[in-house]
Computed example of a mutant assay.
Amino acid sequence: MLEIIIKSIKKTAKVINEHTDYPTCPGIYGFMLKENSHLNEFGIPNQVLYVGIAKDSLKKRDLENHFSNKSTGRSTLRRSIGAILKEEFNLKSFSRNETNSKREILNYKFNVDGEQLLTDWMTENLIVGYWKDEDSISYSELRKLEEEVIKFLKPTLDLDNRTRKYNLLAVKLDDLREICRKEALSNVQI
C-alpha cells in the first residue's frame, strides 16, 4: 500500500492552480518543491517537504486551508514555511486570535502583507499531489498510512510527534518557529 500511495502522490503532483478536479474525499497529500525552487536548507527541487492527511476532504484541507491567507493559524505547513522565510519576507508574528492563550500563540499567524507573501511564495514554488482514500478506511488506519509515508519520505517540515525523529531538521525548524511564537506573544495587546 505504501508504494501505491507514494506513486499516486508523485503522479498527481502539480501546482495548485493546475488542479482542476481536486478530490473531495479523504486521503494523504504531499507538498514538494517545484523544479528550480529551494527553501533554504529545508528543501531542494522535487523534494517532499510535508505530508499530511485529510480526514474529510483533500480539497478543503489543501486548497482552502494551506493556501488561504487567513489560515496560517490552522496550517502547520504555512507556519513552518513562514518561520523559514520570516527574515527574508520581514514577516511579523501574531497570536492567532490576538490573545495570549498558549494555544493561540502556538498557532501563530503573520501580518496581513506577510500572509499574502507567504501564499504567493507557496503558489509559485510548491506542487502538491495526493492519494485518494476510495475505500473509506478508518481515521486511525489513515493515520497509520500517513506515518508510513512520512517514515519513508522523511519530509523536512515534519514535526509530528510520531515521526519527527526521522526529520534531521526538526530541531532547527522548532527553533525558527519558537522565534515566531515569542514574537507573537510580545505582540499581544493586553
Score class of each variant (00 low, 15 high):
2 L>M: 09
2 L>T: 05
3 E>S: 13
4 I>N: 05
8 S>G: 10
18 E>P: 05
20 T>H: 12
20 T>D: 08
23 P>Y: 11
24 T>Y: 14
24 T>M: 13
24 T>D: 11
26 P>D: 12
27 G>M: 12
29 Y>E: 01
29 Y>L: 07
32 M>R: 12
34 K>Q: 13
36 N>V: 10
40 N>W: 08
41 E>A: 09
42 F>N: 01
42 F>G: 04
42 F>E: 03
45 P>D: 06
46 N>V: 03
49 L>V: 05
49 L>S: 02
50 Y>T: 06
51 V>K: 00
52 G>V: 00
53 I>S: 06
56 D>Q: 02
59 K>W: 12
61 R>K: 02
61 R>W: 03
62 D>G: 01
62 D>W: 04
65 N>R: 07
65 N>H: 08
66 H>F: 05
68 S>C: 10
69 N>D: 13
70 K>P: 00
73 G>L: 05
74 R>H: 11
74 R>D: 05
75 S>I: 06
76 T>E: 12
80 S>P: 15
81 I>Y: 02
81 I>M: 03
82 G>I: 13
83 A>M: 09
83 A>I: 10
84 I>S: 00
85 L>F: 03
87 E>N: 15
88 E>H: 14
96 R>Q: 09
98 E>D: 14
98 E>H: 14
99 T>C: 08
100 N>I: 07
100 N>G: 09
102 K>A: 11
105 I>C: 13
105 I>S: 09
105 I>K: 12
106 L>P: 00
107 N>E: 10
108 Y>F: 14
109 K>M: 10
111 N>E: 13
111 N>Y: 08
113 D>S: 10
114 G>W: 00
114 G>A: 07
114 G>F: 01
116 Q>H: 15
117 L>T: 05
118 L>Y: 01
120 D>N: 14
123 T>M: 00
123 T>F: 01
124 E>R: 01
127 I>D: 08
128 V>G: 02
130 Y>D: 00
130 Y>R: 04
131 W>D: 01
132 K>C: 11
133 D>C: 08
135 D>A: 09
136 S>I: 00
139 Y>L: 09
140 S>Q: 13
140 S>D: 15
140 S>W: 15
142 L>V: 03
144 K>H: 00
145 L>A: 06
145 L>R: 12
147 E>P: 07
148 E>W: 13
149 V>Y: 14
149 V>Q: 11
155 P>D: 12
156 T>H: 06
156 T>P: 02
156 T>W: 03
158 D>K: 04
158 D>A: 06
160 D>K: 02
163 T>N: 06
163 T>A: 07
164 R>H: 06
167 N>H: 12
167 N>I: 09
170 A>I: 08
172 K>I: 06
172 K>Y: 14
173 L>N: 06
174 D>F: 06
176 L>S: 11
181 R>W: 09
183 E>N: 07
186 S>R: 15
186 S>Y: 14
187 N>Q: 10
188 V>W: 09
189 Q>S: 05
189 Q>C: 05
